[in-house]
């Protein structure tokens, strides 16, 4: 999982972070428009509290990373942002998830409509068992975006930096692509329906380092047009790609465990001068 060889020195780590700081400051001047605002969000599965008391804002055209130990509810948190948890038996959410000031859990909001605007990329590449072209074209066709479909497919594939690799075999099965190509295809698939936000759930955990680098590079490119939220268990990745980082941890109370948001700040602050001891311990542990 760890991309850095074990002999990497603390010096190099810091320089890694410095690169990140440069990238981050460039964007810091960008939009401060709020895309998501979470107010006192609790997620229950049946009786068990999975994540509790979450308050955070996610800004436009910013890459926000969610990090933390496994089981702390990172993915749950991410999946509440496009209502992907709805189908899970016993799922219950209280508090408010505001998306452009509109609560997405309001009764008259259709989750289908929410997901159509908020794209998602999953842990394992999950291309459909269709051709490369059909993988991209399927959703726009259903959504009524039929005009210039071929151009739309090409734009999506270009946007995901995949066009040059696949333009000669669009009719071939997507399952023949490499893992990194498949994941970028899934990103292209999401881009083709012109989402506003891209949620990425550990998008590189099943990829090799080279493919990981290509996806991370793509995320940088996409920052211009999209708001991105990424869940990752890889500290280096968060440091490399994210402008802001939220650290989640496990809260053990009366024998039950639930996820809490410990600290949420710029990536630089989280990685160099965290305000909470738990954050510092976790980051030291994972980097060391």
């Amino acid at each position: 999982m760890s991309l850095s060889p074990p002999e990497k020195t603390a010096e190099q780590e810091r320089s890694l972070l410095n690169v990140e700081v440069a990238g981050e400051s460039a964007v810091a001047t960008g939009s401060t428009e709020v895309v998501y605002e979470l107010r006192g969000v609790d997620v229950h599965y049946g009786q068990a509290l999975a994540v509790g008391g979450i308050n955070m804002r996610i800004h436009k055209n910013v890459i926000t990373a969610i990090i933390g130990p496994s089981g702390c509810g990172k993915s749950t948190m991410l999946r509440t942002l496009n209502r992907m948890n709805d189908a899970i038996p016993g799922f219950r959410l209280s508090g408010e998830v505001l998306y452009h000031d509109r609560s997405i859990y309001e009764r008259n909001i259709d989750p289908v409509e929410v997901r159509r605007r908020i794209g998602m990329v999953f842990q394992r590449p999950n291309p459909f068992p269709k051709s490369i072209y059909e993988n991209i074209a399927w959703a726009p066709r259903i959504l009524g975006l039929r005009a210039d479909l071929e151009e739309r497919v090409e734009n999506a594939l270009r946007g995901a930096a995949l066009w040059d690799e696949v333009k000669d075999r669009l009719k071939q099965s997507a399952l023949g692509l490499s893992g990194g190509q498949q994941q970028r295809l899934c990103i292209a698939r999401a881009l083709a329906i012109e989402p506003d936000v891209l949620l990425l759930d550990e998008p590189c955990s099943a990829l090799d380092p080279i493919a990981t680098a290509s996806v991370e590079e793509l995320m940088h490119e996409l920052r211009r047009d999209y708001t991105q939220v990424i869940v990752t268990h890889n500290m280096q990745q968060a440091a490399r790609v994210a402008d802001r980082t939220a650290f989640f941890s496990l809260n053990v109370e009366n024998g039950s465990r639930s996820g809490v948001l410990v600290e949420y700040d710029t990536t630089k602050t989280i990685f160099t001068s965290p305000g909470d001891q738990r954050t510092a311990d976790y980051i030291a542990g994972r980097f060391g």
Binding site: Y99, H100, R102, E106, N108, V112, E113, D196, D225
Partner: peptide, 27 residues
């Protein structure tokens, strides 16, 4: 690629004939 459009985001909950038809088919 400049497809991300801010305008579409404000449409959440707005009437959409295509969506209504799809929802009906779904049901």
């Amino acid at each position: 690629m400049s497809t991300a459009t801010g305008s579409s985001t404000t449409l959440l909950g707005a009437e959409d004939r295509n969506l209504r038809r799809r929802r009906l088919t779904d049901r």
